[in-house]
Design a protein around this nucleic acid. Structure first.
Length: 838
RNA sequence: GGCCGAGUGGCGGAAUUGGCAGACGCGCCGGACUCAAAAUCCGGUGUCCGCAAGGACGUGUCGGUUCGAGUCCGACCUCGGCUACCA
């Protein structure tokens, strides 16, 4: 244990007499919590140290979107967890970076602006103020000098700077692509922002129209994003989700000549080994060859199907799993055997993946099997488990590996082998080659909104007069030009009206004075799209490292000092999108030389959801929302913090219980009460010494393992034992205060001060334990007969089997059993159990 | 349908490596203090049988491995989250 921490030389030394004589004061969080929050502010207790001689620890929360409704009880869960680790690490000699900021661009403030005319900037500032007040009220040890706000011009400048780097590297490009246009929201949505065919926010219908968009080439980083998942300490489920999202698959592209046309249908398949079983082909309805190969007698039917597929919303496509499609009348030639197979169109083939066309092998693909059944297309088995073709027709698709059959010269080869051989042969014949496909698509990066970062690009304008006056003009979108870095940030124009218009160019298109400008006598037009909300959160962890740097987004030596983030805590809902986008930008910045760590977040933990009292999701409509302001007013911030950590494992979903938080408050009341009885003369006896050491060990280990619920339980046990003492050793209270302070920092500081020490408690070294003092001299060991406990014996901790057996024979219960039957076997696990088999 | 996770008292949960199931807290019951109540403190509290000593049963279900299973293996049931025609 650290003896320096017991220096009682200054301040009032609490004596037993003193404590007994003075009237006991009640624990009053409403007084002590503001007191210590004021002290921390004045003392600058949580400023991030700037030296480099001590080990560093970067502990980060997913920063919140400051919504109008203020903090939810779910927020403090993760924030308390990281705060405990931050305070614990400071006390154990680390330089800690623990910052907080605001992901403040976003639709709600803009929607509010549309309704009320209030500028989103004002709404956002007000909401930030509320959030910050609430976070301060909870006593989190953030270094507020590093606060960042993604909407501040200073921050936007660097978000735009990163965009320019992406543009320079060819990773940001424009594309005229069918996008998810949501008329109600007046914007385009990313695939991820659509759930069940309607917008994630608001549930509005979404239609697909072709529009010019900015797209980020995240697919160029697919392999690195995949491979580096092996080097992060993340929840397995999250790594799997990212792997599946990236969706790498190895296969081959194969060319099928179209019979009677000078055209080729290119397909991607992961099963080139099943080529001999390809009994038909399917094109996506959007495939350009549909026009070419459709025969006159099928044209009407095909056109109708294409039209129907176009009108079908994503939701309708998903609603039915039934395989529909029509025959085009065209045929294609299988390159391995020259067979002519019919070509269909069907909407189960997606235009956005692979080549938008497949070779269909009904015998070995469930979807093709269903389609073939519906269309009465022959099914040819080319893989079998036994190495021989089946006697009866297949009842379902056989999708597993096996041995090739009905495949000409490849018969008898195992699946892996024929895949390789057939791909090589196709390549030699110029009819195919190995190919890797990803589910991951490039990231549609533009939004037609106001409250986002303007994309720092402009275009030449061909115009006879003044485009601001509405004179006819042509914007040369094919000649995008980067805004000069020294002109950043490119600020948003002021508007009177934020309503989305019918113009898919976005709200900013209406700000003509902003949009058009003249330079050297020529007109130019700014990009009117803004960035999606993800942009700011892609790199905020980096800005926290060097938040006020005006020269660069983050000095490389500081990035080197602090990155990667050692512990990142946030909701599982960001398992894919935010975490994948941030990793992508990080890797670009790595290539750019800004950061030297390959991955931004080393260890990641998702806190679980907090449900309402009844076990239901908290929601306004259920009326079961718990407001942190109310809880703090009634029980105090420390009770709220300790309760949220005591509810259960950090990662678990768990229901709120107001009577349980009252129990936690009683625990803190008792700590405060017993602290007033601290006696500097009293010494802990052997049993208390052992308990102290064991508690230090348990709490230390549990904090490191993020098992806060069991750490709190151990401290409750300690305080219960201290309550029983007539004379309470001050050194025991010191230990309790130190162990408790990361969880209940205000009470920790208060007790520390009551003991006569100078604040802050976290500047005093964390207590250490002696493993030898944790051990009992004697252990109580259960005695089993035939696996059932029949009694207990108390033995020295290193007792032998013979000693144990002798002691066991003394137990009447055991002796009776042993008298009846002979002892056949003895199992002795020292210190754990004695099991006698009779 | 696929993937991931979880099923333990009235409730939240504990048991980190196969070794006393139910730590700690809530709730409930009893007691002390009080004229009384609240607060606080003390004791009890898995279920069943028993006056008791004690015994039987018990970690979603069924089976297996083991001296011994909440923990390991196999099959299944239920709940939650994510995902959903990616060739």
């Amino acid at each position: 244990m650290h003896h320096a921490a017991r220096d009682l030389s200054h301040g009032s030394r609490p004596s037993r007499r003193h404590a007994m004589a003075a009237a006991m004061t009640r624990y009053d969080p409403a007084t002590i919590e503001p007191k210590w929050q004021g002290f921390w502010d004045k003392d600058d207790t949580f400023r991030t140290p700037e030296g480099i001689d001590r080990p560093k620890m970067y502990i980060l929360d997913m920063f919140p979107y400051p919504s109008g409704s203020g903090l939810h009880v779910g927020h403090p869960e993760g924030y308390t967890a990281t705060d405990i680790v931050a305070r614990y690490r400071r006390a154990t000699g680390y330089d800690v970076l623990h910052p907080m900021g605001w992901d403040a661009f976003g639709l709600p403030a803009e929607q509010h602006a549309i309704l009320t005319g209030t500028h989103p900037r004002e709404t956002t500032a007000k909401n930030i103020e509320t959030f910050k007040r609430q976070l301060k009220m909870l006593g989190f040890s953030y270094d507020w000098a590093r606060e960042v706000d993604t909407t501040s011009p200073d921050y936007v400048k660097w978000t735009q700077w990163i965009f320019l780097k992406l543009f320079e590297r060819g990773l940001a490009y424009q594309s005229e692509i069918p996008v998810n246009w949501c008329p109600a929201l007046g914007t385009v949505l990313a695939n991820e922002e659509i759930v069940n065919g309607v917008s994630e926010r608001g549930g509005h219908p979404v239609e697909r129209i072709p529009l010019r968009q900015w797209v980020l080439k995240i697919t160029a980083y697919a392999d690195r994003l995949l491979e580096d998942l092996d080097h992060v300490d993340w929840p397995n489920s999250t790594r799997i989700m990212q792997q599946e999202w990236i969706g790498r698959s190895e296969g081959a592209e194969v060319e099928f000549d179209v019979a009677g046309h000078d055209a080729v249908i290119e397909v991607f398949t992961t099963r080139p080994d099943t080529l001999f079983g390809a009994t038909f082909m399917v094109l996506a309805p959007e495939h350009p060859l549909v026009e070419v190969i459709t025969t006159p007698e099928h044209r009407a039917e095909v056109n109708a199907y294409v039209q129907q597929a176009k009108n079908k919303s994503e939701r309708d496509r998903q609603a039915s799993k039934e395989k529909t499609g029509v025959f085009t009348g065209g045929h294609a030639v299988n390159p391995v055997n020259g067979a002519e197979v019919p070509v269909y169109i069907a909407d189960y083939v997606l235009w956005g993946y692979g080549t938008g066309a497949i070779m269909a092998v009904p015998a070995h693909d469930e979807r093709d099997f269903e389609f073939a059944k519906a269309q009465r297309i022959p099914i040819v088995e080319v893989v079998s488990k036994t190495g021989k073709p089946s006697d009866s027709p297949l009842a379902e698709a056989m999708v597993e590996d096996g041995t090739a059959v009905n495949s000409g010269k490849y018969d008898g080869l195992p699946t892996a082998e024929i895949k390789k051989r057939i791909t090589e042969d196709l390549e030699a014949a110029g009819k195919g080659r190995a190919r890797v496909e990803y589910k991951l698509r490039d990231w549609i990066f533009s939004r037609q909104r106001y409250w986002g970062e303007p994309i720092p690009i402009y275009f030449p304008v061909e115009c006879e007069g003044d485009p601001r006056a509405g004179d006819a003009h042509v914007i040369r979108y094919d000649q995008p030009m980067a805004v000069a870095a020294k002109e950043l940030p490119l600020r948003l124009p002021e508007l009177d009206d934020y309503k989305p218009g019918e113009d898919p160019a976005g709200v900013l298109a209406r700000a003509r004075d902003w949009r058009f400008f003249q330079r050297d006598g020529r007109w130019f037009a700014r990009e009117t799209n803004t960035m999606p909300q993800w942009a700011g959160s892609c790199w905020y962890y980096l800005r926290f490292v060097d938040p006020h740097n005006a020269e660069t987004l983050c000095a490389p030596e500081l990035a080197q000092r602090w990155l990667p983030v050692d512990l990142y805590v946030g909701g599982a809902e960001h398992a894919v999108l935010h975490l994948l986008y941030a990793r992508f930008w990080h890797k670009v910045l790595y290539d750019e030389g800004v950061v030297s760590a390959k991955e931004p977040f080393k260890k990641l933990v998702h806190q679980g959801m907090i449900l309402g009292e009844g076990g239901q999701k908290m929601s306004k409509s259920r009326g079961n929302v718990v407001n942190p302001d109310d809880i703090v007013a009634e029980f105090g911030a420390d009770s709220m913090r300790v309760y949220e950590m005591f509810m259960g494992p950090l990662e678990a979903t768990k229901p709120w219980s107001t009577s349980s938080i009252a129990g936690v408050r009683r625990f803190l009341d008792r700590v405060y009460a017993v602290a007033q009885r601290a006696d500097a003369e009293a010494r802990p006896d052997a049993a208390m010494t052992r308990l102290l050491h064991r508690t230090i060990r348990k709490v230390t280990d549990d904090i490191e393992g993020l098992r806060f619920n069991t750490a709190i339980s151990a401290m409750m046990v300690l305080s219960n034992e201290l309550m029983k003492l007539d004379q309470v050793p001050a050194e025991a209270i010191e230990v309790l205060a130190q162990l408790l302070h990361p969880f209940a920092p205000h009470l920790g500081e208060e007790v520390w001060e009551m003991l006569g020490h100078r604040p802050s408690i976290q500047e005093h070294p964390w207590p250490s334990y002696d493993p030898a003092l944790c051990e009992e001299d004697e252990v109580e060991v259960p005695v089993q007969v035939n696996g059932k406990v029949r009694g207990r014996i108390t033995l020295p901790k290193d007792a032998s089997q013979d000693q144990a057996l002798a002691a066991a024979r003394e137990l009447p219960n055991v002796a009776a059993q042993l008298d009846e039957k002979p002892l056949r076997k003895t199992i002795w696990v020292p210190g754990k159990i004695l099991n006698l088999i009779v």
